Computed example of a mutant assay.
Amino acid sequence: MHKLIPWDTDPVRAFKEFVSTTAFAQTGRRLRADGTLRALSAESAKIYIFMFGNVASWILEQGLSFSSVTHADLLRFINRTENGKRVLNSKIAYRYLRLLERCYEYLEVAPNPAQQAIIGIDRAHMSKDEPGRTLSEDQLQRFFAALPAQAPRLRRNTPFDGWKRRRDRAMQVVIALTGLRVSEAVGLLLPEVGRQIALDGSIVLTITPDEKHDTSHEHTVTLPRQGADELRHWLQEREAMAIPGQFVFPANLTGARMTRKTVYVQMRATFERAGMDLARSGGRTLRNTFAKRQLDNGARADELKDVLGLALERSAADYNFTRVKPDPAD
């Protein structure tokens, strides 16, 4: 029981020390062809630490400790809902439980609460998760047509009236054509926008973890000419307005960071103007659409992993899609 003490007093620190050890690799039982243990990559360790931190925060909020958690508590954790929707899909929920199972196995806790929780969930349901929704080419063009319009110059009292509308327009085009997460678009920095324009008019974005979500990984993605033109026009206006800071899409004239909620609200408004009543009208649908177009163009799972900034190739291989249902206007 003495091994559990640090996991109760500072569980995140205890896990960080554990995840880098051979003992953690042994609980994974992943072997190379020669029979030796497969080392954990730094990127995978970062993901595991992020996941464990989520569990540890929830345990603390519930007034529990790591040693007192039961399988019923863990089932409550994975079945949490927000606005009537589950926070974790079944595949991700299983990965959380599997991670915790490894921790309790290492600590020699019997019965293992995470193992009991795994037995208690419907594994068959995991293969039935709703596929990621994507837009058809026609719907995507309707989305672009419904973007915030460029404010007519005759209606401007100053050259920069309506600048937020043009910022939102450029941001949504970038998200749709590069598959960026909303957190990555919000945290996009000026140095991450390539200065060199390709012969076809495209530019390369180099996404780094700076100012992004904890699970963002460095990767490059090409913004095609349609998006590059929109982005360049916005950046020229941003420079003319002398907005300080490094955010490509600042929240205000002081250069502050935008909130993801603001982006979601503006994006939903675009979907509504396009006449698409979507249950999931947001960044995820646009990211799925980008991924589907990549696969349709012959991209392999490892290539999709790179352009989406995923840590694991199996995450890209998990992508499966369904088209958004046609609405009455179709």
Rank of each mutant, 00 (worst) to 15 (best):
R29L: 11
H71M: 07
G275A: 06
I121R: 14
T215S: 10
G283R: 00
I207T: 05
A242T: 07
I243V: 13
L177H: 03
L235T: 00
G35I: 01
L37P: 01
N89I: 07
A110S: 05
R181D: 04
R133D: 10
L107Q: 11
D214V: 14
A110P: 12
E130W: 13
Q141N: 12
T259K: 03
L40H: 12
M171H: 02
H71I: 03
R314G: 09
A274D: 05
F50D: 15
M276C: 04
M51H: 11
Y106T: 04
K46M: 06
I78A: 01
R268N: 03
R165V: 02
T220W: 13
R133M: 10
A56M: 06
V12H: 05
V174R: 00
E239Q: 12
E82N: 05
H125D: 13
L310K: 02
I119S: 13
V307Y: 02
S281T: 04
V12T: 06
G84I: 03
L278S: 10
K85R: 15
P111Y: 15
R95I: 12
V69H: 02
L295I: 14
G132N: 13
T285R: 01
R155D: 08
S44Q: 06
S183K: 05
T270C: 10
S315K: 11
V182Q: 07
E137Y: 08
M258S: 05
G201C: 02
G309N: 00
E230F: 04
D296I: 04
P131I: 03
N252W: 04
M126R: 08
I175L: 10
R225H: 15
L154I: 14
A72L: 14
D8R: 00
A114E: 01
G298Y: 09
D10T: 09
K292G: 05
P113T: 12
R287G: 02
T36E: 00
P209S: 07
P113Q: 07
L199I: 14
W58Y: 13
A301P: 08
E130Q: 13
Q116G: 06
F18M: 07
T36F: 08
R29P: 11
G255P: 00
R225S: 13
L154V: 15
K91A: 13
P11T: 04
D277G: 11
A291C: 14
D330Y: 05
D138T: 14
A329K: 04
T178L: 07
S57M: 14
V87C: 10
Y106R: 15
V87I: 15
M171L: 09
E192Q: 15
E303T: 15
R102N: 07
A145D: 15
I243H: 07
G275M: 06
S136W: 05
